[in-house]
Computed example of a mutant assay.
Amino acid sequence: MSSINIIQTLIDADLFQTQKTIQRYQFLKIKGETDTNVYFVEEGSVRIFIMDGDEERIIRFGYKDNIIVSLDSFLSEKPSDFYIQAIKKTTVKIASKKAFYDFIQSNDEHLKLWTFILEDLVLQQVEREKDLLINSPKERFERVLKRSPKLFQEIPNKYIANYLRMSPETLSRLKKS
């Protein structure tokens, strides 16, 4: 099952009952909030980050046709340490946890879909951890480029550089080579 099929299945199920537009730099969610919604990005882009002292550490992006969620808060129903902020004007459709769980518990195929989503998230997290453990900026850049080429068309370099734990100048040099 592909990400496109999953997203289409969720949209066809009419889970996303409300819509919200957030302006550039506006927050969809801030640290300390409990957020159990699932978001489908219709237009625009967001970044998910955590504060490390006075430094932002970007851990994920969402852009057109992506599903995003504050997974720690979604699963635990407790406040999250993460922020979700619009990089540019962004429109999201919103599904509540209850609607989402009602859907996945409604039949075996939907439960399999949820298992696939969770497995995919775990694999993405493993890939992210590998990226952070690799010392060479060039290797980190090449891994992310191979895995998510659309990222480089949707997200400004300064945010990608932060995500890759390198300076914007290093990212610029790597993109040129």
Rank of each mutant, 00 (worst) to 15 (best):
L145H: 08
L145F: 13
L132H: 08
P137W: 02
F116L: 10
E142T: 07
K138N: 08
V122R: 05
W114F: 15
S136C: 04
L123D: 10
L123C: 10
D131Y: 00
R140D: 09
Q125T: 04
D131T: 03
L145D: 15
L118V: 07
F116Q: 09
Q124F: 09
I117A: 07
L145K: 07
V144N: 08
V122A: 15
L121V: 00
L145E: 15
F141D: 14
I134H: 03
L132S: 10
D120I: 00
V122F: 14
L123T: 03
T115K: 09
E139D: 15
Q124A: 15
K138F: 11
R143E: 13
R143N: 15
E127S: 12
F141A: 13
K130Q: 06
E129M: 09
N135K: 01
V122D: 10
R143T: 10
E127M: 02
Q124V: 00
R143D: 12
Q124Y: 10
T115C: 11
E139T: 08
L133N: 09
L145Y: 13
F141N: 05
P137H: 03
S136P: 06
D131A: 05
V122S: 13
S136Q: 06
V122M: 09
L133T: 07
F116D: 12
F141Q: 05
V126G: 12
V144P: 09
K130C: 02
F141C: 11
N135V: 05
L123K: 02
E129D: 11
L132D: 06
L133M: 12
R140C: 08
W114V: 07
I134N: 06
D120R: 05
E129C: 05
E129A: 08
L123S: 10
D131V: 01
D120C: 03
K130W: 00
P137S: 07
K130A: 07
W114C: 14
I117H: 05
P137C: 06
L133E: 07
L123E: 09
R143Y: 08
V126A: 13
L118A: 12
I117K: 02
R128A: 00
T115H: 10
E139Q: 14
F116P: 02
L133Q: 12
I117C: 10
N135M: 05
E142Y: 07
R140I: 07
S136K: 01
E129H: 01
I117E: 04
L132Q: 06
Q125I: 01
L123V: 05
F116T: 04
E127T: 00
W114K: 07
I117L: 14
Q125G: 13
E139V: 08
E142C: 11
D131P: 00
R143M: 15
T115Y: 14
E142H: 08
R128Q: 04
S136R: 00
L121S: 12
Q125E: 15
E119S: 11
K130M: 06
Q124D: 14
L145S: 15
I134A: 07
D131N: 09
P137G: 09
E119D: 12
